[in-house]
Amino acid sequence: MIIAERKPLEDIKQMIAQYKKILLVGCGTCVTVCWAGGEKEVGILASQLRLAFRRDGGELETLEATVERQCEKEMVEELKDKIQQVEAVLSLGCGAGVQTIADRFEETPVYPALNTKFVGMPEREGLWIENCGACGDCFLDRTGGICPIVRCAKGLLNGPCGGTNKGKCEVDPEKDCAWTLIYRRLEKQGRLDLMRKYYPPRNFQAVVRPGKIEAQRV
């Protein structure tokens, strides 16, 4: 799942300072789940912006909408009527959502209210951690299902560095050392031989941007 977080209010205010009426658009998928851009957050941000404008002596009018998935052209179509009534759109979707709306409604400026941070999972309510770097060449078969590329602070491919300390990471002693976790997992599965294998550094230059995947027709 894509994890995002709201930008500081100051940044958002600057983006939309020139407008009198805007539409805030939430997304009902990833960013709802990570509490950043669902209908609830749309309501709170709209209210906070109205108050902020009033505090500065102005007035802001807001419309609100939340679509099922902002990254789908068809799904943002329902915003058409509302977008016609406003000067700009503030999207509480991930970067893909912002761009989908911007592509579909080219005449209207679309601004991001969130910073799209990473692919991750919830550890507990309200806490999300990055556990996939979307590197495009999955390595998890060799590491017991634990990704050292993102979960090791140094992204090491061949076992822990010298800074591993009783299962914790020297970069951030709060965090687990990914390679200790990998070792324990492989030990449990009787696959410690994998630790002896050498993997050459990966060639990230070969990654083509923008990524593109075309599936075979189903």
């Binding site: 500081p8 209010l9 906070q48 108050l51 902020a52």
Partner: peptide, 8 residues
């Protein structure tokens, strides 16, 4: 926190 962000 939200109010402080607004300056209140």
């Amino acid at each position: 926190a939200l109010l402080r962000e607004i300056g209140v």
